[in-house]
Design a protein around this nucleic acid. Structure first.
Length: 462
RNA sequence: GGCGGAGUAGCCAAGUGGUAAGGCAUCGGUUUGCAAAACCGCUAUUCGUGGGUUCGAUUCCCACCUCCGCCUCCA
């Protein structure tokens, strides 16, 4: 497949470096509260990316970290009166439950920062040894960005250098840390009173690792100096990913990620999500409004990952209807296909365009469109052709990670409701429309909708 | 202020140097005693605004307007 590369600023064909599995890393969540749908836009798109590779026959090796120690986790666990470990374990479990509801494939490895303190210390030691980092008097360690000329390439810092220089001078005095320059970032944070008992020993004194270092250490541990792709939200480009590149290349000597995949932010009602605006939705919030995680997934893949996507409650309704339509089309196709027919999907038939869209810079909205038009074409097919088309349809659906709603199960109808319905049907048969309509109203009040057919009626709970 | 991105029908949203996918909604039709549901169909002479290049631009170039992101923690 082809995918846009943030570093090269063009889309490129993806080829695994080692020729077998495609090895990639995704920056995971900081577990200090429930993830919101904006976070999940990133994770869902990464999931579609992985599924597309796998559907296309490429094996993958997927690493995604859990940030379980930083300023926010420490601050909030103390506020909650819990140990850091218990606090982050709780939110990690919540995150996993949400991921499962959204049908995200679990990463092959999901390392946590706390479990990898030694690896992070090793990395700092390597950086100090190579003169890329220095310890300050207070026991913190900083990376010296002046020692890495390639710094800023990903975020085009080279074009901002002049401006950044001004900023440095302006802020030099207000900086509470001792640093050679403002842009030097922290690798090891010296222990502070407000950290409580959340600190670890190191050659530079008690403290804890800096956030940027965590990902570099995980990558070094599980993917090595060179790997295929690194992904995250667009906001991580600077400084997080820029810093990762600096740390890893200086410590490991490799080229680090061969490809950079960044997902643009989700907008809500045309603007940024924020707690104060009350538009920061979690899956739980939306479930309370009657929307399933799968519907949320549909909305999140309804826009291209490099464009802002405007999330609205209305789009959730649209997703509900659209998925029902897809399900209906699939059922119609299944009804025409021989039950015993099995095919090794060779091509994609009517769904070729849908599949191609996915492989062309992960064009998920284009793919969804192709699904509908493909279904229209497939409706003309019969027998084995219908079976082949259905197999292709399901294959694309799996790549998107969508599962369609099943037929509504038959609901238990209470005896009194059934009696009312029978009475109404009799009135209707006697052409007593007034009574029939009145009784339809009564049934509606009791929460049941009645649909008349030629031979009988159908009752469904509202 | 610097850097980056976006503006396509009521809403969401693809796409392309050659005349606008798809979904939702609306509307119309079939059906129905009337509804509902279902099915079928219609709906952008036009792609933020103004110029330019071109036989031809929504697509390329310039200017402007609006919105968003990053520059501090952030998916």
């Amino acid at each position: 497949m082809r995918l846009y590369d943030t570093m090269a600023r063009e889309s490129r064909e993806l080829r695994p470096l080692d020729g077998s599995a495609f090895r990639f890393y995704c920056c995971g969540p900081t577990v200090y509260g429930p993830a919101h749908i904006g976070n999940f836009r990133t994770f869902v798109l990464q999931d579609v990316f992985r599924r597309t590779l796998e559907t296309g026959g490429t094996r993958t090796f997927h690493v995604r970290n859990i940030t379980d120690v930083d300023d926010k986790t420490i601050r909030d666990c103390q506020a909650a009166g819990q140990s850091l470990r218990d606090f982050t374990a709780f939110w990690t479990a919540k995150f996993h439950a949400d991921c499962e509801a959204l049908a995200l494939l679990p990463p092959h490895v999901e390392p946590g920062a706390v479990e990898h303190i030694p690896q992070q210390i090793d990395m700092i030691a390597a950086l100090i040894e190579k003169d890329h980092a220095y310890a300050s008097d207070d026991g913190s360690v900083y990376f010296n960005i002046a020692s890495f000329p390639a710094y800023g390439k990903l975020s085009r810092l080279d074009q901002r250098e002049l401006e950044l220089g001004k900023t440095q001078n302006a802020r030099a005095n207000s900086d509470e840390y001792e640093k050679d320059s403002l842009s030097d970032f922290v690798l090891w944070k010296a222990r502070k009173p407000e950290d409580g008992d959340n600190f670890w020993p190191s050659p530079w004194g008690d403290g804890r690792p800096g956030w940027h270092l965590e990902c570099s250490a995980m990558i070094r541990e599980y993917l090595g100096a060179d790997f295929d792709l690194h992904s995250g939200g667009i906001d991580l480009v600077f400084p997080h990913h820029e810093n990762e590149i600096a740390q890893s290349r200086c410590a490991c000597g490799g080229h680090f990620a061969a490809h950079w995949f960044h997902i643009t932010h989700l907008l809500v009602d045309g603007g940024k999500m924020s707690k104060s605006l009350g538009n920061l939705y979690t899956l739980e919030d939306l479930a309370a409004k009657g929307f399933s995680a799968m519907e949320v997934r549909y909305v999140l893949i309804g826009g291209h990952y490099r464009k802002p996507l405007n999330f609205t409650l209305d789009s959730l309704h649209a997703a509900q209807e659209a998925m029902a339509k897809l399900a209906k089309g699939a059922r119609a196709l299944a009804a025409k296909a021989p039950a015993e027919a099995r095919f090794d999907a060779v091509g994609f038939g009517p769904f070729q365009a849908a599949w191609d869209a996915l492989n062309d810079d992960l064009n998920t909205p284009g793919c969804l469109g192709g699904l509908f038009t493909g279904l229209r074409e497939a409706a003309k097919l019969d027998g084995e052709d219908a079976a082949k088309a259905l197999a292709a349809f399901n294959r694309v659906l799996r790549a998107l990670g969508l599962s369609l709603p099943e037929d509504e199960p038959e609901a238990e109808i209470p005896a009194d409701i059934l009696a009312l319905a029978e009475e109404r049907w009799a009135a209707r048969a006697a052409k007593d429309w007034t009574k029939a309509d009145t009784m339809r109203g009564q049934l509606a009040e009791k929460g049941w909708a009645v649909k008349d057919g030629k031979e009988g009626y159908e009752l469904t709970p509202v």
